[in-house]
Write a protein that binds this DNA or RNA. Structure first.
Length: 270
DNA sequence: AGAATTACCTGAGCGC
DNA sequence: TGCGCTCAGGTAATTC
């Protein structure tokens, strides 16, 4: 599932491929997403140039003349740039037809994704206004985490997955960051020391940056026949419950926190 | 305010 | 082969 690194890799690819392109047509094949695709996109978008591709958390912001598309990939959504017109398939919801014959295609089997249009300040849009600091930018560090966690009894893993606390940390990277910081996921957030908050913030930044870097090197964005390859990393704990810890060889344990699969090493994560 | 719960959705993997 | 079941999980909305 796309998490922040996958969204960032997608952002870079879209920016490289489509910045400066003009939207000539819009085809809504299936508007039915959790939030429906606005039916007036085919009237609104043609003639506008794509100026910039930004990101806020896991939301992509496709800034056009006098407005922008807000796109979230949900659990199973993906975007592809097709070099030519290619017949649509199952779960293809939306095509943006660009100048030069290229198509930006949005596909999402599970329909958790989002495509919206806004002409106001995107950061004050209801979906984006309450999102916490970007983990890779100024404002997210151990000091911030420490201060914020003093009154929180919730498990630290749930805290860092809360988008109002920090943007874009999903289940995979929450598991990975806690393992690499040596912190047990079920620890009450308020029990973390200042040093542990420093370590956790730094580790979140590290695992996200690593994955963005590796993802960028294997991007195959233009290949129509294949799904985008994400996740170049072999995860150290995610999906490995019951298997040996790479650190100590002991068996990784699995439990559920906030109804999310949680894997950790009982020895390495004190 | 913080925390817990639920709804949304389909494909994959499983046991039988 | 196929049926029915469980699981995967980001986010918003709802409730406590």
């Amino acid at each position: 599932m796309p998490e922040l690194p996958e969204v960032e890799v997608t952002r870079r690819a879209l920016a490289a491929e489509l910045t400066g392109g003009r939207i000539e047509g819009v085809i809504i094949r299936s508007p039915k997403l959790r939030l429906p695709i606005p039916p007036d996109l085919p009237l609104l978008l043609p003639g506008r140039m794509l100026r910039e591709v930004g990101r806020r958390g896991k939301y992509l912001l496709l800034t056009c003349d006098d407005g922008r598309l807000i796109i979230h990939l949900g659990m199973t959504g993906h975007l592809r740039v097709l070099p030519t017109r290619i017949a649509a398939g199952k779960h293809d919801h939306l095509d943006l037809l660009f100048s030069g014959g290229r198509t930006l295609r949005f596909n999402d089997p599970r329909k958790f994704g989002t495509v919206l249009w806004t002409e106001g300040n995107p950061l004050s849009h209801p979906l984006l206004a309450g999102i916490g600091p970007e983990p890779l930018e100024e404002g997210f560090d151990g000091d911030y985490l420490f201060t914020l966690s003093r009154t929180r009894c919730v498990a630290v893993k749930q805290l860092i997955m809360n988008s109002s606390v920090v943007a874009g940390v999903g289940n995979i990277y929450a598991n990975e960051a806690l393992f690499r910081a040596g912190i047990r996921p079920a620890r009450p957030a308020k029990s973390l020391s200042r040093e542990e908050c420093d370590s956790l913030a730094a580790t979140i930044r590290l695992v996200l940056a690593e994955s963005i870097h590796q993802g960028s090197t294997i991007m195959n964005f233009g290949v129509a026949e294949e799904p985008l390859r994400y996740h170049p990393l072999d995860f150290r704990v995610y999906g490995r419950g019951g298997e040996p810890c790479f650190g100590c060889g002991g068996m990784l344990e699995e439990l559920r926190l906030g109804n999310r699969s949680t894997v950790f090493c009982p020895l390495c994560q004190g």
